[in-house]
Design a protein around this nucleic acid. Structure first.
Length: 201
DNA sequence: CGCGTTTGACCTGCGC
DNA sequence: GCGCAGGTCAAACGCG
C-alpha cells in the first residue's frame, strides 16, 4: 500500500486545555529523529510524521502540550501513521503485532519521560560499551504486557533513548479527543469523541 | 501496610 | 559446550 501524500489527512487530535502552557523542555524537530543504527527498533519517527501532525510539536513549538501529552500523542500517532502509511525503517509495511518496537531518541535532562502510561520498573542493567545503565519498565495496567527500555545515548548522554515494545491492551490515559472519521487504531486504543469529557490520569 | 524501586541471581540466546 | 551479554525475576528495602 502506498503512503498517502499527507499521512495526517485523516486525523485530527486535540488535547485538553489542561495540558496547555506547561511544557518544560524545548525540543527541536531533529530531537525526534532516530539514527538507523541507534537500536534494533523497527520504526523511525520521521520528519513527515512530526511535521504533518497537529502542529504542536513542529520545530520546537512545544508549548501546546505537556511533555507527557506529546509523548503519548507521538506514541498513539505512530501506530495510526503506520496503519495508514505502512511506513517503517526498511520501507516495507510491517504487521502491528504485539512484538512491534518503537524507539524515541530525545534530548532531555529527565531520565524517565512521562508518556502518560503508568510504568513499573522491573530491572536495571549495565550495557556493554556504555557508561549508562539501561532501565526496564512494564506497564502497570493489569493484563497489559507492554514494556519499555530507557537508557542514555552512549555517545551523547544528553539524549534519552526510550524503546517501547508491544501494544497497550487498554485505553491511553491521555485525554485525546477525536472528532473526525474513525481511524484504523491498533487493538486496545479507543479515542474519545470531542463531545465527551474525561478525567486526566 | 501497600506499592514501587533496587539489585543480585538466574535465565536465555547467540557467537565462537 | 562454553562464555558473554542482555533480559527477567523476586526478595529486600524504602517511602508515603
Amino acid at each position: 500500500m502506498d503512503p498517502p501524500s499527507n499521512p495526517n489527512q485523516n486525523s485530527n487530535f486535540v488535547f485538553s486545555d489542561e495540558y496547555e502552557n506547561n511544557f518544560p523542555i524545548e525540543f527541536g524537530l531533529s530531537d525526534y529523529l532516530i539514527s538507523g543504527d541507534c537500536l534494533d527498533e523497527d520504526i523511525i519517527i520521521s520528519d513527515s510524521v512530526i511535521s504533518n501532525s497537529t502542529g504542536k510539536v513542529i520545530n520546537g513549538e512545544s508549548t501546546g502540550s505537556t511533555r507527557g501529552a506529546i509523548f503519548g500523542y507521538l506514541f498513539i500517532y505512530l501506530f495510526i501513521y503506520l496503519h495508514i502509511c505502512g511506513k517503517c525503517r526498511n520501507g516495507a509495511k510491517k504487521k502491528m503485532d504485539t512484538g512491534q518496537r518503537i524507539a524515541f531518541k530525545i534530548q532531555s535532562e529527565l531520565e524517565v519521560l512521562d508518556d502518560g502510561f503508568k510504568w513499573r520498573k522491573y530491572g536495571k542493567k549495565s550495557v556493554k560499551n556504555s557508561p549508562n545503565p539501561r532501565n526496564y519498565y512494564k506497564c502497570s495496567n493489569v493484563g497489559c504486557h507492554v514494556k519499555k527500555r530507557v537508557e542514555r545515548d552512549r555517545e551523547d548522554a544528553s539524549y534519552v533513548i526510550t524503546t517501547y515494545e508491544g501494544v497497550h491492551s487498554h485505553e491511553s490515559p491521555y485525554i485525546v479527543y477525536y472528532n473526525r472519521t474513525p481511524l484504523m487504531l491498533p487493538a486496545g486504543y479507543a479515542l474519545q469523541p470531542a463531545s465527551q469529557s474525561s478525567s486526566s490520569q
